[in-house]
């Protein structure tokens, strides 16, 4: 029975100490594709071990949107590394139920890695074309990300605005604001070169003047 496999895999993970053992145990747990493994995989995201977290996050992404409700209650206030991974998984699933969490993470999280991952989520979140309120909220958050203090969040905003404008019907006033912001990020008023390069690429791909 599958649940015996799950119990055994969780036990193996609990006994693992070295990184190769942890990676192996996480991989076998993820390979069960059992939604009940989600809780343990989410716990693994908090081990502060990028090799292991990367395997766990891939496993969670494979479990699909059924795990979204659990992800929504898994933000660990004391561990920003873990929060960044949770947001990344949520962002990759593109589930519209993630909107509140992503919006809040971008506005309020102290960790740039969390705000960066949230920006990507808001860029790629699946929104219904008729749901103009959600589209507006995603766009407004991306505009906020473009004015973040951290270069990596502004970089993510340049990427995100490009994605939104390419893939969603956005109200004209938002398009105008997005292009203005991309223009600023592409100009010498932006101090970080890689942000300028990414914003220039975005404008080029959007065929903007």
């Amino acid at each position: 029975m599958a649940k015996a496999d799950l119990t055994a895999a969780v036990a193996r993970l609990e006994q693992a100490t070295s990184t190769p053992e942890l990676v192996q145990a996480t991989r076998s747990l993820a390979s069960l594709r059992d939604p009940d493994a989600a809780e343990t995989l989410i716990k693994v995201l908090g081990f502060n071990n990028p090799a292991v977290a990367s395997v766990a996050s891939e496993g969670l992404i494979r479990l699909g949107r059924s795990i979204v409700p659990r992800l929504l209650v898994s933000m660990d206030a004391r561990n920003y590394g873990a929060r960044a991974w949770v947001v990344k998984v949520l962002a990759t699933l593109h589930d519209p139920r993630g909107l509140d969490l992503l919006e809040h993470a971008l506005k309020a999280d102290i960790a740039p890695s969390v705000r960066r991952a949230a920006t990507r989520g808001l860029a790629e979140l699946e929104v219904n074309e008729e749901d103009t309120d959600s589209i507006r909220r995603c766009c407004e958050s991306l505009l906020l990300a473009g004015r973040d203090d951290e270069w990596v969040v502004r970089y993510a905003a340049a990427f995100g605005l490009e994605q939104r404008l390419r893939n969603t019907t956005v109200p004209d006033s938002m398009v105008h604001q997005a292009l203005t912001l991309l223009g600023q990020l592409a100009s010498s008023s932006e101090s970080v070169k890689v942000v300028r390069l990414r914003a220039q690429l975005a404008l080029q791909l959007l065929n903007a003047p």
């Binding site: 990184t19 990028p50 090799a51 590394g81 990344k88 740039p112 960066r116």
Partner: peptide
């Protein structure tokens, strides 16, 4: 590499 994404960036 097995390193945090923020450092890779």
């Amino acid at each position: 590499a097995a390193v945090e994404p923020s450092l890779k960036l």
